[in-house]
């Protein structure tokens, strides 16, 4: 079976610096894959290349076997690949409910947007907001929510798009440690119940080892290791990269 999402020799240079260097990763349908690496390893740049926010200098990105590399960002998202940002990105002056409604995938065209959202969309929005625990705050402006609540809202917005693949940039960053288990449950739940494939960047090792099926390690723009959490934890090169041993 061919992977659902793959990068093949993706390279991105900024001036003289190669931020992502010939990276191949493969994500199978239904997997939760972690992407780790020290700061500046090129993780976020790789995300930007996958989503079309940046155009790679060389290499290809494929979703379900179809090439994405030439598509603009919004077209990539329309293919079912949705990303969440490292710093929360919600529409601050709009209410929580409007944030969810505007994110729907139904009638995604301009013409379809000219009628008020239908009952099914509204129910879906209510259900998802309830699911992430924001059911009581639907009429509050999103900008007034706490950081953690905004992350949950962004999660619900992504789910409104009914993604096939979800890219999460540091989902655990800034979240109250006591709430991390809940977050792991959310991710596992959308993965199994809503059959969403997940690729996530994470710095919190405990978290990523717990949630991911498989992990890629990036350092200096290159993939230096790939394997199950246990394999990664015992990989010499990974320890070198993290501890700065040469």
């Amino acid at each position: 079976m061919s992977p659902q999402l793959s990068t093949d020799g993706v390279t991105k240079r900024f001036g003289g610096v190669t931020a992502v260097d010939d990276v191949d990763i493969e994500v199978e349908q239904g997997e939760i894959v972690g992407l780790i690496g020290p700061n500046g390893a090129g993780k976020s740049t790789l995300f930007n290349c996958i989503t079309g926010a940046l155009t790679p200098n060389s290499g290809t990105v494929r979703l379900d076997g179809e090439e994405l590399s030439e598509l603009p960002e919004h077209a990539v998202a329309q293919q079912g690949l949705i990303r969440m940002f490292q710093h929360t990105r919600v529409y601050g002056e709009m209410t929580v409910r409007e944030n969810a409604l505007v994110s729907t995938a139904e009638d995604a065209g301009l013409a379809g947007s000219l009628t008020p959202p239908g009952d099914s969309t509204r129910e879906r929005a209510s259900e998802l907001l309830e699911y992430v625990g924001l059911g009581g705050l639907t009429d509050v402006k999103a900008g007034r929510l706490s950081f953690g609540q905004q992350k949950l809202l962004e999660f619900a917005m992504a789910l409104m798009r009914e993604p096939d693949v979800l890219l999460m940039d540091e989902p655990a960053g800034g979240i109250n440690p006591a709430k991390l288990n809940q977050l792991i449950e959310y991710i596992r739940d959308v993965n199994s119940e809503r059959s969403v494939t997940v690729l996530l960047i994470e710095h919190n090792m405990e978290f990523v080892m717990e949630v991911a099926d498989r992990i890629y390690v990036l350092a200096h723009g290159e993939t230096i290791a790939e394997g199950s959490p246990t394999e990664i934890q015992n990989n010499e090169r990974v320890l070198d990269a993290y501890l700065g041993r040469e």
Binding site: G133, L134, S146, F147, G148, Q149, P177
Partner: peptide, 12 residues
Amino acid sequence: AGEESGGETGGE
């Protein structure tokens, strides 16, 4: 609901 303010400082 959701996060307490204490949860907002754990970011890296």
